[in-house]
């Protein structure tokens, strides 16, 4: 028991290894056409895909469409995924690409200057400072960013990936990603401050 406890402490990423082993097993089984195994694989990674898509696209219906497309691409590429070492990085990359594609088909990003017009008309300034309104503004703030800035910020600040992992997922250099992240942080802060200043 003590030995096991020691090992668990010495390897805090043990859970992650177990997760990747489970993913590898599910991928191997799904590659043979086993849909039950593929469903298991989806359950293991559905939060990553759907939540990331929701943060990138801003609404649940589009996020569900994007998630569906991501998992269908995963099914088509099970052979390649098995060969690539970092499965979550692959999933993040595909999710971002699918969301890029969907974003291109919809409206372009909204200029920051126009953002206050999106606020709910007649909202009470006192209520705006709290709760629902604040959440709405914060969600909206991501829509003010360019697609690449939004992806960099979401992956780094909300998904908690390192700068290197974000660069890998976006297919960019770390320097580019750092620049995108810093610009995105400043834009979001400016948007939120400007919004509440005007409302008050």
């Amino acid at each position: 028991m003590k030995a096991l406890a020691f090992l668990a402490m010495a390897n805090p990423a043990g859970g992650s290894d177990a997760g990747s082993d489970a993913s590898a097993r599910a991928i191997a089984a799904a590659r043979t056409g086993d849909l039950v195994a593929f469903e298991t694989l989806m359950r293991q990674h559905e939060r990553l895909v759907l939540v990331t898509a929701l943060r990138l696209l801003g609404n649940m219906e589009d996020a569900k469409d994007a998630s569906q497309e991501v998992f269908l691409r995963l099914y088509r590429n099970l052979g390649k995924v098995g060969a690539s070492g970092n499965f979550p990085a692959w999933l993040y990359r595909v999710t971002v690409n699918v969301c890029y594609d969907m974003g291109r088909k919809r409206t372009a990003s909204i200029p920051v200057e126009d953002a206050p017009d999106l606020a709910a008309p007649g909202a009470d300034p006192h209520q705006s400072a709290a709760g629902t309104e604040r959440q709405r503004v914060l969600h909206m703030s991501l829509r003010m960013l360019s697609a690449k800035e939004r992806a960099a910020l979401v992956l780094r600040d909300l998904e908690g990936l390192s700068t290197g992992e974000v660069a890998q997922a976006l297919g960019s250099s770390e320097a580019t990603v750092r620049s995108q992240i810093s610009q995105a942080r400043v834009k979001v802060k400016d948007f939120v401050e400007r919004y509440f200043r005007r409302r008050i």
């Binding site: 989806m42 559905e46 604040r134 914060l138 909300l158 942080r185």
Partner: peptide, 26 residues
Amino acid sequence: TAGLLREAHSEPVESAHYAAVRARVL
């Protein structure tokens, strides 16, 4: 702002949405 943003996006997604995606894919 970073703290508020994380807080705003920390709400869990309902399991029904995950199930819907799974059902559509399968």
